[in-house]
Simulated scan of single mutants.
Amino acid sequence: MGVKLDGRDPREFGLIFLKDHYHPHTSEIRSKTLIIPGRPGAWDFGAEWDIRTFNLPFAIIEYNKLEMQRKIRAFVAFLLDSYGRPREVKLTFDYDPDKYYSVKLAAQISHERFFFAEQFELPLVAHDPYAKSLVSSDAITMDSDVSIQADIMWDTGISERTITSPETFTIVNNGTVALRFSYVVEGSGTNVKLSANGKTFTLGTFSNKTYEVDGDMFTVKVNGVTDLTTTSGDFIELLPGSNTITVSGSNLNLIISESLTYKYI
């Protein structure tokens, strides 16, 4: 059993990952309630996932005290940026190798130092509580060399489509969490619209342009420049499983492509 941080094994720093560790199956839950005087209980406005925390136990065995300090300092420096501030790294577990969490050092590293050994817990926090797929959707095909352990539908990598008339196509969200659809539209069309799951996003009429729609960031770039003035509607969401995308308009000569990063509870 082991972990990797940004693809690196802690053994590269002389550290031993101890098997008993804290890895919660879910993140913390943030409940949204309102207490109304005179009303029993509370008004429930639902709940949201909060941050996810990890405490990873490590040990180091080194008879040379100076060398021990050097190894620990190198490991801590690896977790920091050039200004000495905690940076985001990808945390993966060997029992879930196709997913990662974006984590940062969350608190002081406390330790127990013995004559020739040291043991400590590494406190990490994922401000985005979801696990994410290490491989994007456009790389997942039957012919690829990708090692995937998750239960997925293959050939989701067919992500570049030529659209010359109104049509529908299917996109598979292999994660367990809904995604806001991010995609690229290139070409020309009149009154171009994309719809799915009750939401419609309108690109309008354009000629020889490239639209980069980033659902996660709620942004649109037109020919590489951020511009929200020429589009309208709701950013499309992809629910877990198969999603039907409808493209409407006239005089269509489009190429539509996407590269999805699946999310998991």
Rank of each mutant, 00 (worst) to 15 (best):
G2S: 11
V3N: 00
V3P: 00
L5N: 00
L5T: 00
R8D: 07
D9V: 03
D9E: 11
P10T: 04
E12A: 06
E12M: 09
G14M: 04
L15Y: 01
L15Q: 00
L15T: 00
F17C: 07
L18M: 10
L18G: 01
L18I: 05
D20E: 14
H21M: 12
Y22T: 08
H23T: 12
H25S: 12
T26Q: 11
T26P: 01
S27D: 09
E28G: 09
I29C: 01
K32E: 08
T33S: 10
T33W: 07
T33E: 15
L34P: 01
I35Q: 15
I35S: 13
P37G: 13
P37H: 12
R39L: 13
R39Q: 10
R39W: 04
R39K: 14
P40K: 07
P40E: 08
P40A: 05
G41C: 05
G41N: 06
G41P: 06
W43S: 08
D44Q: 08
D44Y: 10
F45I: 05
G46Y: 14
A47R: 15
E48P: 01
E48S: 10
W49G: 10
D50N: 15
I51H: 10
I51S: 09
I51G: 01
I51P: 00
I51C: 06
T53E: 15
N55K: 13
P57G: 01
F58A: 01
F58I: 01
A59D: 02
A59F: 00
A59H: 02
I60E: 00
Y63F: 11
Y63L: 07
N64I: 08
E67C: 02
E67D: 11
E67K: 14
M68Q: 14
R70V: 04
R70T: 15
K71P: 07
I72R: 10
R73H: 13
A74G: 02
A74F: 02
A74W: 02
V76S: 07
F78M: 10
L80F: 06
L80M: 13
S82W: 03
G84V: 12
R85T: 14
P86N: 05
P86A: 02
R87L: 04
R87W: 04
V89G: 08
V89A: 06
K90W: 11
L91F: 11
T92M: 09
F93E: 00
D94Y: 03
Y95W: 14
Y95R: 04
Y95G: 02
P97W: 02
D98T: 15
D98A: 15
K99C: 12
Y100R: 01
Y101K: 03
Y101A: 06
Y101T: 04
S102P: 03
K104R: 15
K104V: 13
L105M: 08
L105T: 03
A106P: 02
A106H: 05
A107C: 03
A107G: 12
Q108C: 10
S110K: 13
H111V: 05
R113K: 14
F114M: 10
F114G: 13
F115A: 09
F116V: 09
